[in-house]
Amino acid sequence: MKGQKNNNYRHMLVDLKPSMKLEGQVTKLGLFGAFVDVGAEREGLVHISMLKRGHVNRAEDVVQEGQKVEVWIHRVDPNAGRLELTMIKPIQLKWDKIKPGLKLKGEVVRLEKFGAFVDVGAERPGLVHVSELSTEYVSDPSDVVKVGDEIEVSVVDINRKKRQIRLSMKEVALEVEDDEEATDEVPTAMEFALRQALQHSDNKEPEIQSSPRRNQNREQKELEDILDRTLKHRVRTASSSE
């Protein structure tokens, strides 16, 4: 990498921040971890303890030279030319921010007979119980979601002591249905005015028959007058209520 100009780098160390996600390629393995080229002035080191969650005996048990990987910035010191990386996704959602009713987007990471585990950026994945996967009966979670699916969920309950999060897809679906029904049921001001106008027009007493053209013109004018009065009445009512 010596002799390269700064403008050939995809990233400059001074621009990198902790938790920033990057893509890179493993260039060398050692007893203490793996070096990864992310396109910066220096290769970054993923310490063996940061290759994955849990104990790792050897770096080659997790990655191989030449492998493309996703990494996150752990620490960066531009003055010292030091770049520390991690392959463990940083926690984006802290426990004190998780509350019932909170809407989140996440990725399905594991399926069990009793439900689906979803990574929402917290310390641990949350569980969508099989009964919370859909508004309809579900016998097998794989009938609704697959590993890798991006889904929207709602927090049902949390147990900070046990580090457990209960999630629901059903709650999100029910809220969407309620919103759609509310939108269908509430008419706009124009729709309301037209309904009122048509209703008043239907209730008017029949007049003495005259020529078809004259009747048509009169009915059109009456409808326009009724519509105009109705709209003005709606505006006055809205203003007085404020």
Rank of each mutant, 00 (worst) to 15 (best):
G3H: 03
K5T: 08
N6P: 00
N6L: 12
N7W: 13
N7C: 01
H11F: 12
V14R: 15
V14L: 11
L16F: 12
P18K: 07
S19H: 10
E23F: 07
E23D: 06
E23G: 11
G24Y: 02
G24N: 08
V26R: 14
L29S: 05
L31I: 06
F32Y: 09
F35P: 02
D37W: 01
G39S: 11
G39P: 11
G39Q: 10
A40N: 02
R42H: 10
E43H: 03
E43A: 01
V46F: 03
H47I: 00
I48T: 02
I48V: 14
I48Q: 03
L51R: 12
H55R: 15
R58F: 13
A59K: 11
E60Y: 11
E60F: 09
E60R: 14
D61R: 10
V63M: 07
Q64W: 04
Q64C: 03
G66D: 10
K68L: 06
K68N: 14
K68W: 10
I73H: 04
V76E: 08
V76G: 08
N79L: 10
G81D: 11
L83I: 12
E84I: 08
T86P: 04
K89C: 03
P90I: 03
P90Q: 07
I91G: 01
I91Q: 13
L93Y: 08
K94L: 10
I98E: 11
I98K: 14
K105T: 15
G106S: 05
E107H: 08
V108S: 09
V108I: 14
V108A: 07
V109K: 05
R110A: 12
R110E: 12
E112Y: 01
F114G: 04
F114Y: 15
G115S: 03
A116H: 03
F117E: 06
F117N: 07
F117P: 05
D119S: 09
V120F: 01
G121M: 08
P125H: 05
L127G: 09
V130F: 03
S131L: 09
E132M: 09
L133N: 11
S134T: 07
T135K: 13
S139C: 00
D140R: 13
D140I: 11
P141S: 03
V147A: 07
V153L: 03
V155Y: 01
I158E: 01
K161F: 08
K161T: 14
I165M: 02
M169N: 05
K170N: 04
A173V: 08
V176Q: 12
E177W: 05
D178I: 12
A182V: 02
D184L: 15
D184R: 15
E185D: 12
V186E: 12
A189P: 06
M190H: 02
M190Q: 08
E191H: 02
R195I: 04
Q196S: 04
Q199A: 15
D202Y: 09
D202R: 15
D202M: 13
N203H: 05
N203D: 13
N203I: 00
N203F: 00
K204R: 14
Q209V: 09
S211V: 09
R213W: 08
N215H: 10
E224M: 09
E224N: 03
I226N: 10
L227P: 03
T230S: 01
T230L: 00
T230A: 02
K232A: 01
H233G: 06
H233C: 01
R234A: 11
V235G: 01
V235W: 02
A238F: 04
E242W: 02
E242L: 14
